[in-house]
Amino acid sequence: MNSKTLTCIVVLVLLALPLRGWGASYAAGAYGGFAPSLGGDLHTAQHYSEFQSHNGIDGMNRSMEGYDTGRIDRILGVTCGMLFKTIFYDYYQVRIAMNYTWGYFGGSGKTVFDDGGTTRLLDCEYSFWEADIPVTFGISIPFWKDIRIAFSCGLAYAYADYSYRFESSTGQQWKGSFAGWGLPLVIILEGEYFVTENVAASTSLVYYKGSTKVLKDGSDAGGTDFARIDFSGYRYSLGVTYYFGSI
């Protein structure tokens, strides 16, 4: 992470701290949810050069009579995280969170590929995990004493690790491993329903847009590969938020 990015994140966090004298309220929470299409189409250069796929995992999704192929779904991720936020002047909020998201379902199956003029079966397995720290600023609108609906946007520092392993019916293996960080745009729509004066059930819909720069394969099997890790996609979560003091 370069110094400018770090400075931005530190300034945003510090902005949230000295507001107690201005009638600010603070809240912390935890949540869990899911992220469809984690890592996007997981495309790499070798998907095209070795396996004739223009669009990553989607292009690997093939079938052919006489071959026992199985659908390869994009990865469905499970996500969990913690948040801390400050609400000031009743309507404005700064929110910082820490999330961990990992592949739970999909990302494996059997396909076919052209191995030098011969069609062969190929076992495919993809794995992906991601940790990110989104910092967002926005508005939080209270409706009477029991509801808050918030909309905020900002950036996240996101680190991800993506790897794949393919094995053909002849036993030949290809592996790819990529790790890197990026600063995706983050947009968050949140709703909170206050069960007590301080405790709220919360739900959020988060959109990420961004990717890493092009990364070089860190594995040593099947030649050198290149990929860009894609952070883009939606996440839906349910959780609980505790307000330190009444809203």
């Binding site: 409706f143 329903y193 839906y236 979560s237």
Partner: peptide, 17 residues
């Protein structure tokens, strides 16, 4: 499945996955 946020006398807002 999700959470709903009733707004008195007006209706409601809801979000689910």
């Amino acid at each position: 499945l999700g959470l709903r946020f009733p707004v008195k006398d007006r209706g409601e807002f809801y979000m689910g996955g």
